[in-house]
Design a protein around this nucleic acid. Structure first.
Lengths: 217, 217
DNA sequence: CAATCTTTGTGATTTAATTAACATATATTC
DNA sequence: GAATATATGTTAATTAAATCACAAAGATTG
């Protein structure tokens, strides 16, 4: 991925984790946390946590640590979670429905505005109060509703077609669950969730472990 | 994650990508490929590809390149895709069903043996020919059917409970889709798919890009 | 079949990421 | 309120990852 900022993706991908762990702390009424305590919870080293946070400014206080609420807020802002993103899901299969039903995304500012599908039986229905719309109307809908993010939950065979349609509009990012790499304009952010790659990694580790075990014997 | 082998996770996580791209080449009847050509397709540098592959031995031939079929096979073996893993899905919600319906996993050697759920209306049904079983029978089922991998698709609130049950058995790996970090025995491989982290990364990049844009003006 | 071209495998180098170390600021204690 | 303990922010050191560069092997060509 082409980057502009000086903050590395390695750091960026840890931010949501910090955010989540801080949320847990808030739930448990913990108001204050040190990098060392965070280290125990998150598994990252205290040093790394401090260095990560300092990419964005000093949120802590020497001798005290970090105020949990404040840090949670700040990281939220850094992640852009204080903003609203008009979002649509494309593909009302199980995966699309799973995402539609997971209200957490909506609460986090990703406004799920519509779900698109080819199946006329689904069109007109609502899933978690989100209308299912005919995919033929996708382009128009994106333009009219100022959609910034599209979530591709179609089969592999349809993913590029959908991406092509969306690319003609002003969308800014694609969250892609189809097991393929999309070709799109340079300026569109693409985040892939390739489930099989994740599963294959398990497979590798299992095999490796078994080999290690055999060696020991 | 605790590692044993000398091959870094960075390399391991690229292997499934190579595997997938090679599959594409096979579909297009391409028999031979150089690291340079692979570089164009995958976006990794040719040098990195050669170095990655050499972690596992020399699969290429100087002056020729790599035999696509052979390399695809070899990477498949490295990933352990020539083996069969008895697998169960826990949670027959949309996400669990999505995974159950995605036959690709089954074809890749992850035998989806059962789906567990608490909902008595679902128990007894079949999803993509996989029986839905009462979650109360989980432990016994795992033991009797030699299950090695469990896929957690439950809500967050149930995930640790399920993990605790599974941890009493001989399972070897957990593929976790619940938005939480599981506490399990050291020897169990846990691969998390934290969707919100992926989405939040998009959010960060969007925000960052907008800031870049404003600066230019 | 000799000459040339291609492309791997690999050691050296560079760049990036992580960890360690510590000075400084603040909190806490007695 | 002085003394001590704590914990950040930050620079330096270390480790890990990616890239470069090239010799050697083998393919291709005329």
């Amino acid at each position: 991925m082409e980057r502009f900022s000086s903050v590395s993706m390695a750091v960026v991908r840890r931010l949501p984790k910090y955010h989540r762990y801080l949320e847990e702390l808030i739930k448990n009424d913990i108001r204050r946390v040190s990098s060392q305590e965070l280290s125990k919870i998150t598994g990252f080293t205290a040093s790394q946590i401090r260095q990560d946070l300092n990419c964005f400014g000093g949120f802590g206080q020497q001798g005290y640590g970090y105020n949990v609420d404040e840090l949670h807020d700040e990281i939220g802002k850094i992640l852009g979670l204080n903003k609203l993103y008009n979002t649509v899901i494309i593909g009302a299969g199980n995966l699309g429905q799973a995402i539609a039903n997971y209200s957490f995304f909506d609460k986090s500012g990703f406004k799920m505005t519509a779900i698109f599908d080819v199946n006329p039986k689904l069109v007109g229905m609502k899933i978690n109060d989100i209308p299912v719309v005919d995919v033929d109307e996708l382009e128009q809908f994106i333009n009219e509703h100022n959609i910034e993010i599209i979530v591709i939950c179609t089969p592999k065979s349809q993913a590029q077609k959908v991406a092509d349609i969306a690319t003609r509009t002003n969308i800014k990012a694609i969250w892609n669950f189809a097991p393929t790499d999309l070709k799109v304009r340079e300026d569109i952010i693409v985040e892939n969730v390739h489930l099989s790659e994740s599963l294959f990694t398990i497979s590798y580790l299992l095999k490796e472990k078994e080999e290690q075990y055999r060696k020991k014997k």
